[in-house]
Amino acid sequence: MNPQSASSEVTGGVNQSSTKVRIEKLSFFYGTHQVLKSVSMDIPALQVTALIGPSGCGKTTLLRCLNRMHDLYPGNRYEGSVHVQPDGMDILGPGMDPIQVRMRFGMVFQKPNPFPKSIYENVAYGLRLQGMNKRRDLDERVEKALREAAIWDEVKSRLHQMAHNLSGGQQQRLCIARAIATDPDVVLFDEPTSALDPIATSKIEELIVELKKRVTVLIVTHNLQQAGRISDMTAFMYLGELVEFGSTNQLFTNPSKPQTEDYISGRFG
């Protein structure tokens, strides 16, 4: 397939050290309550980076900073900067429109949230938002996204039925198709399997590993095994701070911070 050759070229060329998103001194406040404390990390391109930590540690908050979801609610404030390569856009920069940011970042949520529309229209939604109106183009891109989300064979005969009739796991894969249809730079996963059964979960996990061939993946998970199975890099957060960030292998087998070790060995969290 064409995309694969292109992406393998990129990974081969720039190696794993190429940074896709550079987070610098990112702090976040709900009103006066500081939830993120000066987090800095470089998220590598075309890899799966997992955010782990006990609940309330700020991992989901960090994820939602990256596509400015916090702007939907009043009283929230960011500090610091988040640059996206290759063009170096600062998504927290002054005058940066959250809508523009969100068009570059795909997001998949905790629970499947298909729109009350047909399967086809769910996937076409983002494409239409980015100005694609021709039926032929849409058909092609919808099919491509559904294939990449490994759901095409299950839905190709009923593209125009309501998405709500799908099973939970299918809905979530549809939501992944919706998120990747517009070729975002980065896809953010917010505990995408927490509402799913084990079989559906393993399908999603396979899919995420497959996805990194062409997009950068950032995933929040409370499931350590899941982080171990699918991620290349892992960040451990605690009380709003980034405690440790490194390759998953190293972080799980030989953590450098005692808190990380405690968490991974199940002493708290």
Binding site: S7, P86, Q100, L129, Q130, G131, D183
Partner: peptide
Amino acid sequence: GGFIVLPEHFFQRQKKQAH
């Protein structure tokens, strides 16, 4: 041909759509 290669004006277009 691929995904990563997006022309510069693509971001401009997103900016316009956002506006």
